[in-house]
């Protein structure tokens, strides 16, 4: 059926067409150059490659080189082979830092993922003020690390700690203030807590994005298939979340393992070197201590751990068989 109105048929009262045609334009040399694929590849890659070389490859190479020299600040060094690593081998402070780095990374990552996943699942439900809640949850991540570190420093202060105040003066559960940062294990757990607080938003928001890619009809199908809510989580949510979980886990492990700011701002590695991470110890030895070679050697010894973590997530958690094959949709 035609859609025209009962009045005049369409096209009768149009103005006459002009005979304008798109003119042929002769391109200048610049336009031709910008159309050249070779030129574009070089022009687009050069800045990126340049930045990578100057700010990534050169410092990394210099760091590795320094690790094999006895350079001090203000005095160029000579190549000493593995001497720096040998002395680290017998250095209990270094091994303490290795221990605490692994401990810090493991505990913080487990907690971040446990709580982050829980938060993501909660936010994926229909809760009121969802977008507001999401924004609030992102806050710890937005605050500059040093700022939040200073806030935690106050919260963990031996005299002015609000946590102690609540426990002792408000609730009356304790008689004495807790010395959060004065004893090794208290300090270690306090830093882990601060790191978890800071790291949860990244995990929660990333996993929430992953959860939202799972089609709700899969849950409905599972509901009809007779799956309980726990079964829906283990059989549908968990396997479908695994690919994004692997990526987020890798990043989270890398960031936590190389953490510096939180620890350096709150404890500077103390008390008695108990909270030194490898990154803070490397800095401590290299810059304030002046032993650039030894500091570089500590930093370089992080590399095998990082490669291991990356390989693990790459092989153990990366693309599953079901993700392969072409999509037809």
């Amino acid at each position: 059926m035609s859609a025209s109105s009962p009045s005049a048929p369409r096209g009768q009262d149009l103005p006459p067409a002009t005979n304008w045609r798109r003119p042929q334009i002769n391109q200048g040399w610049l336009a031709r150059l910008l159309d050249s694929k070779t030129f574009l590849i070089i022009a687009c890659l050069t800045p990126a490659l340049g930045l990578l070389m100057v700010f990534l490859t050169y410092p990394l190479g210099l760091g590795i080189w320094l690790a094999f020299t006895d350079t001090h600040i203000g005095r160029g060094g000579v190549f000493v082979g593995f001497e720096n690593f040998e002395s680290l081998w017998y250095d209990w402070v270094f091994w303490g830092a290795v221990f605490y780095t692994v401990f810090y990374t493991t505990v913080a990552t487990v907690l971040k993922f446990g709580l982050g996943l829980w938060l993501a699942l909660l936010l994926n439900e229909n809760v009121p003020f969802k977008s507001l809640l999401r924004a609030i949850i992102l806050l710890p991540w937005i605050v500059p690390t040093v700022l939040s570190a200073i806030a935690f420093w106050w919260m963990f202060d031996a005299q002015f700690s609000i946590i102690s105040y609540i426990l002792v003066d408000v609730l009356g559960w304790r008689d004495t203030y807790i010395d959060f940062l004065g004893t090794p294990w208290h300090a270690r757990w306090s830093l882990v807590f601060a790191n978890v607080w800071r790291g949860i938003p990244f995990v929660a928001i990333s996993l929430l994005a992953g959860l939202q890619t799972i089609s709700p009809s899969l849950y409905e199908a599972a509901l009809l298939d007779g799956a309980s809510s726990w079964q829906r989580f283990t059989r549908i949510t968990a396997p479908l979340l695994m690919p994004i979980l692997a990526v987020v886990l890798t990043f989270s492990v890398l960031f936590t393992f190389t953490d510096f700011q939180l620890v350096y701002a709150i404890t500077r590695g103390g008390p008695i070197n108990s909270t030194h991470l490898m990154a803070t110890l490397a800095f401590q030895r290299g810059i304030p201590g002046g032993q650039l070679g030894e500091g570089a050697a500590i930093a370089v010894s992080m590399i095998p751990f990082l490669i291991l973590a990356t390989l693990f997530s790459y092989f153990a958690l990366a693309r599953r068989k079901w993700q392969q094959g072409e999509a037809n949709d």
Partner: peptide, 11 residues
């Protein structure tokens, strides 16, 4: 039930 988007478990 058969769903419009089939709702097959991709994994």
């Amino acid at each position: 039930m058969v769903f419009q988007n089939y709702a097959l478990y991709p994994h």
